[in-house]
């Protein structure tokens, strides 16, 4: 399982824990992009710890035969608490294992 970020705050860890428990992913990437939005009002006031912008990639067989919107809804619902608590932007990639392998093959070729 990949976590492509070294600084892991409480929200990062909560996201990691919940996504792992709910989706049992074969691959999980969480990127805290909050530093890119350091000038934003949200960063200065809304969230003291500055964890406001995240990008998550979840690869799981739980997504098999589910339309894209349902996958995203499932991730949003899983992280509803974090969104309400001050995650200002959450970018989601939700793929099945087959899609993930296919995508990586395309990148390599």
């Amino acid at each position: 399982m990949d976590q492509s970020n070294n600084s892991r705050g409480p929200i990062y860890l909560a996201i990691e824990k919940k996504l792992t428990e709910v989706f049992n992913p074969t691959h999980l990437e969480i990127v805290d992009e909050s530093h890119k939005h350091a000038g934003h009002h949200a960063m200065k006031e809304h969230s003291r710890q500055g964890e406001t912008h995240f990008q998550v990639t979840v690869v799981s067989d739980e997504f098999e035969n589910k339309p894209l919107i349902d996958r995203h809804r499932a991730v949003n619902e899983c992280l509803a608490e974090e969104i309400a608590a001050g995650v200002h932007a959450l970018s989601i990639k939700a793929k099945t294992q087959k899609q993930w392998i296919k995508q990586n093959e395309q990148i390599q070729t």
């Binding site: 934003h40 009002h41 949200a42 006031e45 809304h46 001050g86 200002h88």
Partner: peptide, 11 residues
């Protein structure tokens, strides 16, 4: 001032 902490006043 603090109605919308998550966005700048202009927005």
């Amino acid at each position: 001032e603090h109605d919308h902490d998550n966005s700048h006043k202009d927005f």
